[in-house]
């Protein structure tokens, strides 16, 4: 499918469809449903320097056309990933990208250095936008100076493709994107979840253990599109768009807004085969509109 083949920086993708970190496990969880190697990339669960238990339950509630999660980066730590999980997924014939998270610059560096050593991981997605951790996370992603500082530090030691995942919980996401571009990011992905909240009126209590947490799903698609559109006018590095994509049409909208590629998140929970359906749907769109390549419509708005 030449029409869907893309290159971001030095990295080739057989198609622009990736699965968002935290919504697709390590790919293994979805192997029963389709050949996950048909995706452009699998972005695996956020990985930190040490094992994390994440936040207490309740961690999830559904809201109109969306869900709020407060998982809080539960993961087994980078060493476990390198020694165990990596060996289960390194054979995938598509890009496996690790989402790198942390509380301090040192932690981001430590994780990135270890992932840099893994032959079959051609890129990392630096998560400076997780709203569900007390320290670090979104703190780095809401201040242009801090964002630039962490990206610069990781850039020095990480030699492959560096994606930086940005938060929409800022006044100007384009400003943050410019800062990380200046600091050496190869691309940006946006948006991480939107900080939200849900309350049980009868019990007069919050529905999540952290009170505020990350909203995802179709409800946030207009915000994601707006962020991609604004950022595409401000930076030269490619943008990977995400937020509320449920079908190929949504994915096309992100490309029209200026994204070079897209990620599917929450919809993986609803339709485990959605990744493949979006790849096929994008191809069908291009055929129907007589277009020779997906980027023919990139950023036309």
């Amino acid at each position: 499918m030449e029409k869907l083949k893309i290159q971001l920086g030095n990295l080739e993708f057989q198609n622009p469809v990736m699965t968002a970190s935290g919504t697709f496990g390590f790919g293994l969880e979805y192997e029963d449903f389709f050949d996950v190697q048909k995706l452009g990339a699998i972005i695996v669960k956020g990985t930190t320097g040490e094992k994390r238990e994440g936040n207490p339950a309740p961690r999830m509630c559904e809201t109109p056309m969306g869900m709020i999660n407060a998982v809080g980066l539960q993961n087994k730590g980078v060493d476990y990933f390198c020694q165990h999980t990596y060996h289960e997924i390194k054979h995938y014939k598509t890009n496996v990208i690790v989402n790198v998270s942390g509380s301090t610059i040192e932690e981001y560096i430590k994780v990135a250095e270890k992932i840099n050593e893994l032959e079959h991981i051609p890129a990392i997605e630096l998560n400076i936008s997780c709203p569900n951790v007390k320290k670090g996370g979104m703190g780095f992603g809401t201040d242009p100076k801090m964002a630039a500082e962490v990206v610069e530090a990781v850039r020095k030691i990480y030699k492959k493709h560096l994606i930086v995942k940005l938060s929409p919980n800022v006044t100007s996401i384009a400003e943050i994107a410019k800062a990380v571009e200046g600091a050496g990011a190869d691309s940006v992905s946006m948006i991480n979840t939107v900080l939200g909240m849900a309350i049980d009126a009868e019990k007069r209590k919050p529905l999540l253990s952290t009170i505020t947490a990350g909203l995802s799903g179709p409800a946030i698609k207009p915000i994601g599109l707006r962020c991609v559109y604004q950022t595409s006018k401000a930076v030269k590095i490619p943008i990977i768009g995400l937020g509320g994509i449920t079908n190929a049409t949504d994915a096309i909208e992100y490309i029209l807004a200026g994204a070079s590629a897209i990620q599917i998140g929450t919809q993986n929970f609803v339709n485990p085969r959605i990744g493949l359906e979006v790849v096929e749907g994008m191809k069908e769109y291009l055929d129907r509109h007589n277009l020779s390549h997906i980027w023919d419509i990139k950023g036309v708005i």
Partner: peptide
Amino acid sequence: ENKMACGIGACLCCVQN
């Protein structure tokens, strides 16, 4: 019967302590 999203171990929303 914890609140659940994916049902297949991907989202880590339904954890029990």
